[in-house]
Design a protein around this nucleic acid. Structure first.
Lengths: 258, 258
DNA sequence: CGATGAGTTGAGAGCAATCAAGATGGGTGG
DNA sequence: CCACCCATCTTGATTGCTCTCAACTCATCG
């Protein structure tokens, strides 16, 4: 929060550097790649890390572009998208706070990364980070864990894109948000939940393999049926999580077994 | 090949054990999880490993079931599938020789794993394998690499399911097979290519988020248009790889940058 | 030679995409 | 403070692709 002031006001540049904080104060410390790191590791990391902020809508890297860093999302939301020559696009990743950006051992971006909201990244210079990856087993171990989780999420996403109806896709998306929201507070989603949608209708369509019109229509339908309450186009109230879950087509325990 | 005789004839049991080979003779040695292992590692591995064979159609593990091993596919093909309560299913993984099965640190299967063809696995008992994962950095490093590759493949798959037409899906599937085929011979796919489809029309539909009728229709359409030649329902000749690629909607370099 | 499983083809229905207007709401400048 | 603008979102009418239901072909196997 106090850091948002660091990225003071309007920044017309492609990005702006922001002050680097101490790792021990970091809000994502317990969930990011560096979750398993100890105090000694942090002194090393603090040398190779630097903050970067982007405004909503800015492209962080284009697919195919060189990327001289990897990063953790500190706050805000970013998307990974793939585009076909004729312009069709599909989101293939949604990065929330603590998620990791970039692939160690690959120096070009495979996907276009866009700041969906104002976002702050904790960047690590590629070379020294890669060195740490080989010398410190805590880093690759945590990254493996995170990558496996992402693969599970991607597989749930495959089911959504391949087999679910538009209505089920919207409901599923909302349950995913509710779950990720709840997991940050280390609880299970249930009962009445209030959400702020991090995505525009257009970005939701990109995520769900729909058009923005269909997203809008199905949101209206869920609202009409009392499954959701819209208190603003981006403010959603879920009166009954279990009801929403039933609409999503998923079974009660919400997918992956842990 | 010689091993197929080991799984002699009809096996009415859920699975049959087969003789365990030496790691040094293993056909997938250079590509599997154990690719970076040295002779010493192999002596340890040979202690915790055992072969298992399954016949085409057999379920290897059901989603949610306990799984006391992880494994590498030696030969044959297996699928990971997710099922909704009403019976809709979506394939979420296709395991070819050298691919890894199971998640270290998780003792229950998240997906139903099915032998698509007759298949032979190199299984490792979970506990000792996990121990090796923590003591030997070569194993987690390789597994991370493989998992990242799988994540890339899953993301290409997301684009396919979310945005491609039935015709493009079929064409894309064939290019994926051609590429995986070519990569085993360390070449690039080009010109005329002969393929044996590892999947039935039904399994292809599961992979592509289509119905089997649509798969069949689009195969016929591609055949009619000269993009493919069917020399049997499972035998396909691709007269011109670039032509097929153009039908797939992908750009010329076939996706992910390395 | 009938039975079975896999694949093909056809006719019709349904769902989401497309094309096209409006509505809403926040921000800017008069 | 209001009027206007622009981006975002909603809603309507129509089209078209894929699904569904159904019949049929083909090869394999007892």
């Amino acid at each position: 929060m106090q850091v948002k002031a660091t990225n003071s006001g309007v920044t017309p540049q492609p990005f702006s550097d922001a002050g680097t904080e101490r790792c021990s104060d970091c809000p994502i410390r317990t969930r990011a790649v560096c979750a398993n790191c100890d105090a000694d590791d942090f002194t090393v990391l603090e040398d190779v890390k630097y903050d970067r902020s982007y405004q909503a809508g800015q492209v962080i890297v284009w697919a195919g572009e060189r990327m001289d860093f990897v990063a953790s999302v500190i706050e805000g939301v970013a998307s990974l998208t793939q585009t076909m020559e004729d312009g069709r696009t599909q989101m293939v990743g949604l990065l929330l706070p603590s998620d990791f950006l970039g692939r160690p051992g690959r120096d070009r971006a495979s996907y276009t990364v866009t700041a969906v909201s104002d976002i702050r990244l904790c960047c690590f210079r590629r070379k020294p980070f890669q060195q740490m990856m080989t010398s410190n087993p805590r880093l690759p171990a945590r990254l493996l864990e995170m990558t496996l989780d992402e693969l599970d999420a991607a597989r749930e996403w495959l089911l959504l894109l391949g087999r679910k109806s538009a209505r089920e896709k919207i409901a599923s998306f909302l349950t995913i948000l509710a779950r990720r929201e709840a997991s940050q507070h280390r609880t299970e989603p249930q009962g009445e939940i209030r959400l702020t949608l991090p995505l525009t209708r257009d970005a939701m369509a990109d995520y769900l393999g729909l058009t923005l019109e269909t997203v809008s229509r199905q949101m209206s339908a869920l609202k009409r049926d009392g499954v959701i309450v819209l208190t603003g186009s981006r403010e959603v109230l879920l009166p009954d999580y279990d009801l929403l879950l039933a609409e999503s087509g998923d079974d009660a325990d919400g997918g992956v077994i842990n």
